[in-house]
Design a protein around this nucleic acid. Sequence first.
RNA 1: GGUCCCAUCGUCUAGUGGUUAGGACGCUGGCCUCUCACGCCGGAGACCGGGGUUCAACUCCCCGUGGGACUACCA
Length: 479
Amino acid sequence: MAPKPRVRFAPSPTGELHVGNARTALFNWMFARHFGGEFILRIEDTDESRSALSYQLNLIDDLKWLGMDWDEGPQKEGAYGPYKQSQRLNIYEDHLQKLIATDKVYPCYCTEEELEEERQSLILSKRMPRYMGKCRNLSPDERKAREEQGRKHSYRFKVPHLTVEFDDLIRGAMKFEGEAIGDFIIVRSNGMPAYNFAVVIDDHLMAITHVIRGEDHLSNTALQIMLYRAFGFESPTFAHHCLILGKDRSKLSKRHGSVSVGEFRKQGILPEALINYLGLLGSSFTEGREVLSREEMIAAFSLERASKSGAIFDEEKLHWLNAIYIRNCENEDFIKRLFPFLQQAGYQPDKLDAQWLKNVIDTVKNDLIKLTDIGGHIRFFFDEQYELTDAAKEILATEGARKVVTTFGEYLAAAQGLPKDLYAGAIKYVKEKTGVKGKELFMPIRAALTGVVHGPELDRVFEVLGKEKAAKRLQQYNK
RNA sequence: GGUCCCAUCGUCUAGUGGUUAGGACGCUGGCCUCUCACGCCGGAGACCGGGGUUCAACUCCCCGUGGGACUACCA
């Protein structure tokens, strides 16, 4: 790789950022960073009816959240802009003129209804539905006649009937037969450029060296290479990675559940975890390591280690990674990230004592899978949410258990000191006085103190709860 | 239907002619432990089928089969 590579991520702002697209972005980003090249963000918004600025903003926000920075693109203009296709219309027009001048294209006057009819009849006769070239050989007079009828026209590319071969960095030698491809539209009748036309021009003008994208674009590559040749442009190197699949092995889509970066973000998946998982999925450049930082992934990245077959999205593994990242998260930073989730769970973190909240979070942090889990894990620290579950009631139903609890309360009522010492003292006292130890000793105390039978270590819980709250909760058994 | 791509445990993958087919998630047994989790130690679990090539195929070739993508005036 002699010169610095230039790669791009070119989403169309027609919906939320899909994890599959995020993975494509990640591959491009890692590739650029690994080789010290440039990562460009280009917005492909030539479909005016489906594109929306809000999606574009959303997409940019998600990319930033994931920690992928671009060297050129929206909000970071560079030497090859503009980076939004709707602002490059004059460029496409100029290039169309070049193809007209060299007789590589022709106007097509067919209406969508006519095309649909042709397609259906081809399907019925069991032939490949493709454009048969009806308008390809129209005489000047025939064209004039159609113009006079006021018919709009698109422009189609005269597909040369030769085979197109190229070397895919991930898949190796690829070969497509031109015979099977119908003349495709490069400029729509509304004057907007079609996808295959615009990408070729942009990738060339933006000096893109490597096109890394999903396998769903594999067959488009043949068409694009034809255009590169028609313009006399040099083709970039292509690399088509596999797609992310749903449980049924079809392309991951909304019907499979959560698929957008935004959704995972709302669920409290950490960006580090998502990025890490997306890097792991369908590739093996990490060489057996599973938990890697962005930097480690960049260092290890290799396109050649991307797998060729589709990979099923495994939310369980994502969760496993997320839990690891939560555990490893710096406390200060973690609480900040947790704020919106605390609010969503009905708490008012800004009105709580900061140090106390920190202690609360510290004690439950290791039990969280997702940030949205927080509510359920901290509820017993709040009096208004404290209540006994059936399991806890059962534990406390025995005479021995009540004795343990009342004895514990007895000690608390009399003793003074730091919570930590109080707890140790109380446990020792109860042990001596009742002779109970182990499960019979701790479970009743846990049940009475927290109302539930699972949770963090009891000494931690007691410390955070403090003497007042603990004593109050035990009081009801002191009858 | 056509073009193209793909094929190792349930899932993500390692493996590049000779391995007890390795790891991770999940599942599971045990240890740790007041509980859950974490952690640690174990277990079950895979080379789609058939032909070749070869002394030897998971690995190379062919044919099936299966899955997928594309087949738009969407990208």
